[in-house]
């Protein structure tokens, strides 16, 4: 076990060295050059703030609340965006009917929806979830739609000749799997946008908990080491969500693409 650990360390020596040097450089700059905790809290201060929120347990509530906001947004965006994208991609009429509406709504920055999110849902988790939803839905719709548009005709025709002739079956057995890579990349883009919207929505106080909210509060209290700690936390969490999603997707949904040259 210990031996394994050392082996990995050795294999990743360049990466480890790089991270270590940045930390040392950071600590040094904060202590001896900047010497101002409001402008640049040191690594040690940030680490302390991290342990303090773990000790108080507040980090767990905030984490869960942020994930709740994110979850509301992604579930709503998925269950509305996916069917809409499918309908637009498969039935020309739907696309013609929905497209102009999407083209008008899409360029509106999701954060501009925050006032209405509060007007409609009050200061609730739903309001924060709604802002995340607005950020996520368009990439999902658009990638689903374009995935459907790019289905090779020969696959649809092969399916028809093999006895798959109903629209619903063609969508389920041919179009969806064929468009899956595009849909997945849409979801990944959406998660990135949604993550940004999440922090902004929480900073605006749409709800009284969450990492983004705490980050903003710490700023008002001039606790910049906490601000930086929450920033890093958001970064790591975003990375974690994205890579677990990728791992799952590559192993389960897109196994057939492994090794293909795209």
């Amino acid at each position: 076990m210990n031996f394994e650990f050392i082996k990995t360390l050795r294999q990743k020596s360049v990466e480890v060295l790089s991270v270590l040097s940045v930390i040392i450089l950071w600590q040094f700059t904060a202590d001896f050059i900047v010497q101002n905790k409001l402008k640049l809290p040191s690594f040690y201060d940030v680490a302390l703030s991290f342990f303090s929120v773990i000790e108080s347990g507040s980090i767990f509530t905030d984490l869960l609340v942020s994930l709740l906001h994110f979850g509301i947004g992604i579930i709503a965006a998925f269950f509305i965006g996916l069917p809409l994208g499918i309908a637009m991609g498969w039935f020309k009429k739907t696309s013609r009917a929905v497209d102009p509406i999407i083209e008008v709504l899409r360029p509106i920055p999701p954060l501009a929806w925050i006032p209405f999110a509060m007007a409609w849902f009050g200061l609730t988790h739903t309001a924060a979830g709604f802002v995340v939803f607005v950020g996520m839905i368009f990439p999902i719709i658009i990638n689903t739609y374009s995935g459907f548009k790019n289905i090779p005709k020969v696959h649809v025709e092969a399916a028809k000749v093999l006895g798959c002739t109903k629209n619903l079956d063609l969508i389920r057995y041919v179009a969806l799997p064929s468009a899956m890579p595009s849909i997945i990349s849409g979801i990944r883009i959406a998660m990135g946008v949604g993550w940004m919207c999440l922090v902004a929505a929480e900073m605006f106080g749409v709800s009284g908990d969450g990492l983004g909210y705490e980050l903003w509060q710490s700023f008002h209290l001039h606790r910049m080491n906490f601000v930086l700690m929450y920033m890093l936390l958001l970064g790591f969490l975003g990375l974690f969500i994205d890579s677990s999603f990728r791992y799952y997707v590559d192993a389960k949904l897109l196994r057939w693409k492994a090794g293909t040259v795209v």
């Binding site: 020969v154 696959h155 025709e157 092969a158 399916a159 041919v174 799997p177 064929s178 899956m180 057939w256 693409k257 293909t260």
Partner: peptide, 10 residues
């Protein structure tokens, strides 16, 4: 078919 038409996801 003339083109390769197997479903690549199966």
């Amino acid at each position: 078919f003339q083109q390769y038409s197997l479903f690549p996801w199966r």
